[in-house]
Design a binder for these strands. Sequence first.
DNA 1: ATCGTAGGCTAACGATCGTTCGTATGTCAA
DNA 2: TTGACATACGAACGATCGTTAGCCTACGAT
Lengths: 214, 214
Amino acid sequence: MSKFSATQRRLAAIATVLPPGATPEGSRGVILGEALRLFAEHGYGGASIRDIAKLAGIKGASVYSHYPSKAHVLAELIRIGHEEHLRRIRSALLAASPEPRLQLIAVVRAHVLAHADYPMLAVVSNAELHALPSEFAAPILELRRQSELLLLEVIRRGESLGAFKVADTELALLAIGAMGLRVAHWYTPELDKTPEQIADAYGDFACRIVGAMN
Amino acid sequence: MSKFSATQRRLAAIATVLPPGATPEGSRGVILGEALRLFAEHGYGGASIRDIAKLAGIKGASVYSHYPSKAHVLAELIRIGHEEHLRRIRSALLAASPEPRLQLIAVVRAHVLAHADYPMLAVVSNAELHALPSEFAAPILELRRQSELLLLEVIRRGESLGAFKVADTELALLAIGAMGLRVAHWYTPELDKTPEQIADAYGDFACRIVGAMN
DNA sequence: ATCGTAGGCTAACGATCGTTCGTATGTCAA
DNA sequence: TTGACATACGAACGATCGTTAGCCTACGAT
């Protein structure tokens, strides 16, 4: 383990943890939470099983009573992160008025809020995806594809209804996605902006990018 | 080293290498280039000195004839990445007409092109910054601050001249920066979009975000 | 002609890695 | 009361890590 704290160069918040419904109880949950902290701060390769175990109050060998390998721990974290992300976008879209502009705002707000509410989970889900053994990657990438598809469909619908004016749909999609992704790296509760304010601003940015009339 | 290729989950391009002026000659340069490839694909912790040496055609111990440590190799890569980035933004701004809108387009274009021209360097400079020992980090973070400041000043000047209408300057800055950052993760020369097209589109997006009149 | 240096090499160091093994302890159902 | 199961443990495995030491060789300058 490194002798320096590099948190500030990776994510700003030491905020709490995992989505309520998704966290297992007992040691399984504690291991998951502490692994998340360490993976977010030092990366998958920079955090050892023994480091995780120590924070969880057990010994390294005991981790294997709960998870078959270190990769399984990472896989579960990334799965939780992507499922929470998709779940939020889905329900936001379901609750939104059918106007294209309001749909876009709803999706972008959900996207941003997911990254501000669980910054560590978002950082690990995105930045450590490359460390995930390929046998675990397929279902994750499918979740990712579905989230992206929802945003894409909202933009396309807005275009075909004449509500949006986009030069390049795909680039707009990528740009809007990227804006939100990055929030996890700098958001902290100590900021003078609430997640709501950020979500509102980014929703507005997205509307401007796609040329949404209002 | 892992037994799977995770390139697609981290960056799309296997493009070539380092900025022309910045690459040392001889083994020093070869080591730097191969280290960049491996750090981009597997992360700093996922690439060993022996892996780098093997690709460079030498043995692990010989790396230490050229660099005092693995961290020094990473530090040099990240320094090159950030210096190239700042250099491009500076010169783009210097060559731009003084109209705020054109200045913003120039800076965003330079930002995007830096990430599309050297995707591996950009990925390592951003995603592996947290792996850099803190004694190396300070000058890097200063470069980063300067690049950010240039964009911020362009936006602020546009606002005060009444050319831009931004609700939250800081959020606009972060959003525009994030858009460009992410390009390095998906751009590949095999795409049906040239870096120029992407830069143009993103320049336009940035103008829309800050409400630049045209 | 010689010598210093640059840049390779093999070998090995101690540390740490993910993981396995065998065992002990506590809890709860039969 | 017994026995099975879940959860913890210490110890150790082989592999790999970053790094160092010592040696060899080719070559350019004196």
